[in-house]
Design a protein around this nucleic acid. Sequence first.
DNA 1: CCCTAAACTAAGCAGTTGCTTAGATATAAT
DNA 2: ATTATATCTAAGCAACTGCTTAGTTTAGGG
Lengths: 203, 203
Amino acid sequence: MLFQSNCLVLFRSEEAMARKKQYNEQEVIDKAMALFWRNGYENTSVRMLEKEMGINQFSIYASFGSKHGVFLESINTYKKRIKCITDKLQASQNGKEGIKQYFYDFLKFARENGVNKGCLVTNTVNEIKKESDPVLMEELSKFAEGIKQLFLNNLLQDKNKSTQVAKKQANYLMNCILGLSVASKVYKQSELDDIIEITFMNI
Amino acid sequence: MLFQSNCLVLFRSEEAMARKKQYNEQEVIDKAMALFWRNGYENTSVRMLEKEMGINQFSIYASFGSKHGVFLESINTYKKRIKCITDKLQASQNGKEGIKQYFYDFLKFARENGVNKGCLVTNTVNEIKKESDPVLMEELSKFAEGIKQLFLNNLLQDKNKSTQVAKKQANYLMNCILGLSVASKVYKQSELDDIIEITFMNI
DNA sequence: CCCTAAACTAAGCAGTTGCTTAGATATAAT
DNA sequence: ATTATATCTAAGCAACTGCTTAGTTTAGGG
């Protein structure tokens, strides 16, 4: 739905023009994402979105179709925002050290005013049921798969490592960072640091 | 609230007695727990509880006070049900092998009809906000702390291991099993097996 | 066999949910 | 300025939320 109305504007440019949107869709989705991230999907109501996004319900539905539509765009925006650290991982040539850096970068990324919110994708996997929204679930799985692939690539920078072993280790590292997404909500930073250090001693 | 009415029955036994409860409170809480485990707290409505528990809303509120009260009793029942595998861990004398066995036991415990539901406590930590229900959050933390202590005891069965190192490793293992609670919802059994094997390789 | 009190049924409460609609407002091409 | 049309505000929709209550049924001591 995002930017669809802009396309419409272009398409109908020969007809009489009407009032301009008083908000930027990307800006209000950024705010919606922050809210979903803090509260989860079910614990975020359309009234709360209205306040946080600073626009009326009508505008929300005009731009994004439904609460679910707002959430899908929030997930897309989450991917954009996390891209800076996944790109850094992709560019890394340090093998497992690059992955360890990603762990620390992720913890920083997921912290807001001293509160750890975990990973929005992980939180969502934990909240929704596979059968209730298989399309979204598939999208989230693909995102996780992409990160696992980056882990794998970095692990294979060690020429002494077989692909078979590297694949198992990539799964292991995915499990550890899933854990961190939860653990960061409860544990203090020094404990998280210890966890990360031991995590990478095993590979 | 659980069993409170039974005490009342005893206390007022000299007065005229009234109708008996047509349900067993522990039995209906078992069913409530199963529902919360599958759906989470917010995604389980009192109407759903009514159907699953097989009793009227009046009876739910008479026995447990509130939806929240039903949930607290469900958490207590969860602890009872998982006790058989934590007891096994407590009795174990195999060091880290005993903990590894606990990991496998947990995965079996959290599976129902081929569906992995994760850990009810972990799911709840992931769903609720610390500030919205600090009492419950504290209770869940204590439960996790108890399991971590069991990990620590088992690790210290290795006489060559310092307490300082064992404590860090216990945190690390907690993180890994938190990860498994999430990962089990997405990954297949063979991948989970690989993850567990690598988790215990170098500790 | 009555009478008390607890447990039952089912209707209903106010508040919230996601979403829609009627009508006022603003904008840009004519 | 006129006009067409998208955007805005705000009221309102039915369905659902957690919870309560009025009224009926049932059990067991006297």
